[in-house]
Write a protein that binds this DNA or RNA. Structure first.
Lengths: 341, 341
DNA sequence: GTGAAAGCGCTAACAA
DNA sequence: TTGTTAGCGCTTTCAC
């Protein structure tokens, strides 16, 4: 609150005045330059303490030769989502080691929000961006990268734009999960997924179809639903197929909230121990349910590690061509996926 | 990357040059001043587009009369914890409406980390701070507030420092939860809690004791354990009391990870339908377990709302004395807490 | 309505 | 080793 005159922070100039030195000497002390006379260092430190001086780093960065703000931007689907927050935390830890702070924001699958947030982050001159994208066209980022902004995509690749990308083996893992159900004797396997516009959702659906195909099972579209997480339609669909003649004997749910909806629906029909279920995505405490939920989970730690290292390297000037990393998933059998037909 | 000469962002000066106007006119256009000749506005906008100019807000804030950075700092226990991330998300939404970005960080119950993070946030000149504190002494913040930094505490109050605070009715709600178990016929109720140094943990323990006292039940310390979340000791303790002669018939678990540990232990003994359990804190999908977990939950949305509004008001110069808000909790009976003795 | 000059708090360059 | 000056990119002041 600068408007308050008794509430103004002292500047480097005042520290210089109080300590009887120059601002440059104060600056040197602040930056740990070793060639300063220890006596002056003492004086400066005393003045700093006396005035409760706190350097303004944003002012310093303005002139500083590297011009860095030591801040990175992180765009997530939703900060409160378990996958997002685990990713956020892992990246926070890595950023801290590099002396970077993280400005994170939720996009809620809204492309406008993606552009808007990226715009404000650029306006703040963050040093780099890690993005779980939601837009279907990232050509607009070309200008930003040309202006020197390092950008790494995680969980989903960019569209119409080439950049470092870290994703998981969505298709392969979904195929394996579906095959797992097939191997337990199922031939009528429902697919419940997120909006197909989302990369991970469409990839996982391809994996599901591929598994059916390889097992010479026919794709029955009446058992397929692409919904929006948490929306009633998933619930309606599940209730509808359970009331139809064509009841599936197994379900592959390709995202955490969809899996939750499926579990609720199964429970409400008393079918949770009769119909097999395999989910894809983080699901806290999947082991506590009865039956435990068999899940394909993502190696968030490795994803965060690779993405962060890539970003930091670009921030340090690395100029090699964009890298694409596909991280294997883990499968944990806990019971729900091992129910036999 | 300023070191890269072909990667430098254009400045307001270049926009002025290209558009054939002055930097002040460009500044006016940028800030939407309406008294600018539309012809000049056109020219300026054309130059901005042509150069892909992005104003540097940190530079602008330096001179700007209010000196604000439009950033707030948010210190949480752990960004990936369900309670923290829900709080974070709620605050993010409110901050966005005010045009503020959020710099969030995890403290992991480490007081050093609290001081360190606050220090870097002040150095960045954030406009305000919302803190879930972990330190046992906040006197060090006095200087910062005197220098004009608005500070609001949430979930836990400050120590040796008076500031706006938003907490829940920890003691009362814990007492009610314990009484709920007593009302179902239990007299040997175990208490499992977090480290007592944590405000919420000690308050909830007081509530537990108060309920016993009012029901004329004796406090049996062999049924009480103050552990650290996720640590094996909670698990060991539970196993020990189940193997003792003094087995409890009910458990009050005062924090989410402790509740999880309790559920796991009960399940491993096949006791989840025999021993009653009430938890305190967020627990995703508590309704999906069998039995459903009866929980005291916190009104995170209201907490975030009140804390944010308080902070924003202080940022706008509000000078009234510190407010203390105690938010009621909600109790949801789902089965685990209604098991009778 | 417009622009030149000063200055925000700091670091870089260069001199002493 | 220390200090002076210029300047980072912008907004403010104030004259035109």
């Amino acid at each position: 609150m600068k408007s308050d005159n008794n509430h103004v922070r002292p500047t480097i100039r005042e520290v210089a005045a109080v300590s009887g030195t120059s601002i440059k000497t104060v600056s040197r002390v602040l930056n740990g330059v070793t060639t300063v006379d220890p006596v002056l260092v003492q004086k400066v430190n005393k003045a700093i303490k006396q005035l409760n001086y706190r350097p303004n780093v944003t002012a310093g960065n303005l002139r500083r030769v590297d011009g860095r703000t030591n801040t990175i931007g992180l765009l997530l689907k939703d900060i409160a989502n378990p996958f997002s927050s685990a990713l956020h935390r892992a990246i926070e830890n890595l950023a801290r080691e590099e002396g970077l702070d993280v400005l994170a924001g939720s996009l809620d699958e809204q492309p406008d929000r993606e552009r808007e947030l990226i715009s404000t982050l650029i306006t703040r001159r963050v040093d780099g961006l890690i993005i779980v994208p939601t837009s279907s066209d990232h050509a607009y980022l070309q200008k930003e990268r040309s202006a020197g902004m390092p950008i790494v995509f995680i969980d989903r690749p960019p569209n119409n734009f080439i950049a470092d990308t870290v994703v998981v083996t969505n298709r392969l893992s979904a195929e394996q999960a579906t095959r797992h159900l097939i191997n337990h004797g199922h031939t009528r396997i429902a697919y419940l997924g997120d909006d197909q516009k989302i990369f991970t959702a469409s990839e996982r659906f391809l994996g599901y179809k591929s598994a059916l195909h390889k097992a010479k099972l026919k794709l029955d579209l009446s058992l397929v639903h692409h919904g929006r997480e948490g929306f009633d339609d998933v619930d309606h669909f599940i209730k509808a197929i359970f009331n139809s003649k064509n009841t599936p004997t197994a379900i592959f749910a390709s995202q955490n909230f969809v899996t939750i909806t499926a579990i609720r629906a199964l429970k409400s029909h008393g079918l949770e121990k009769k119909i097999a279920l395999v989910g894809f995505d983080e699901l806290p405490f999947a082991d506590l349910l009865d039956p435990g939920i068999s899940l394909v989970t993502q190696d968030i730690s490795t994803m965060a590690n690779i993405a962060s290292r890539l970003l930091f390297a670009r921030m340090h000037g690395k100029k090699t061509k964009a890298e694409f990393h596909e991280i294997p998933t883990m499968f944990t059998a806990r019971g729900s996926g091992e129910i036999k037909n």
